[in-house]
Design a protein around this nucleic acid. Sequence first.
DNA 1: CATCAGGGCCCTG
DNA 2: CAGGGCCCTGAT
Length: 325
Amino acid sequence: MNKTMELRKKKTVCIKPSTPFNFEGTFFKPSHFPSKLVVCDNRKLYQAVEVGNKVFGVVISEKSDSVHSAVKVEIFSKNNITEKDIKSVESEIRIRYNLDEDIKEFLKKFRSDKLLSGPVNRWGGMRPSIAYSLYGFLMVTTVLQNATVRRTVQMMDNLLNEFGIKLIFANKEVYAVWKPEDIEKVEEDKLRELRVGYRAKIIKKISHAFASGEISENELRVMKDKEEIKKRLLKLYGVGPQSVSYILFEAFHFYDTLDHLSPWEGKIVSMLLYNKKTVEPKRIMKRVEKRWGKWKMLALHYLFEDLFWRRKNEHIEWLEEEIRD
DNA sequence: CATCAGGGCCCTG
DNA sequence: CAGGGCCCTGAT
């Protein structure tokens, strides 16, 4: 069942993001969950990019002279890579990693904010981003449901081993997510054998929605109305407020997306804002709204990512208690 | 050994 | 709108 592809053809393209730009903060998100979909090694990122019905492997790295920071993308494919392929891979990466956004106003406005000045200094130019397609992201949010990180990883691995496409390029192995049509008709019991539990039904239904064209990422991308996108996403079986808020922020880049705080996020924000673990979400939300307004989720993102980066180097006692894996 | 909650969501009343 | 149930696992 497992498909493997060796990608031997290669082309390189260089992308100039809008400024200011922070490579590390944009491409490496320590708060995102680890999987075989994205491999990081030595300041390079390896992943699959699906466009149309083609699958490419890419190696993303920073290419900087002393003034400008640019993004180098090495594209790998089984077949010859055309100019059109290069364009579409570049465009896909620009969108997923939010490389054309202008967040100067945010950075300027809050560079002296007591809580944000540190993160803005260290990470100014970092963008909210997501490595996956919308469909891939939905598969991730599905396995995140009601599970610890460890179990989430296990479920994702099981699914990828059975249905994913193993890509071999640049001396690395990463997986591409299966296509919706490859999985929508699989027996529910077969999915359950992969220990995904009740999520089997969700995976099938979401896959059907994509395979049938009921929902399409490109259609949503050109819609600028957040509420409309939200409505369409919520129609999907197994997609609720939590998944939608992740998606609206990370995949569609709406910086004011904060309709509710999940418990684990609530505890962390509570600690950052009040230095107390148990402030009620309602109060936190009000304070966040007042302080950062339409930038509130982006502000929280800067705080979170900064915190998770710090966690890599120093032990933060109260944080360890909140993160289980 | 049993019980429980976990980085939600659906469904019912 | 509140609350039970859902799959499965590791923690207790």
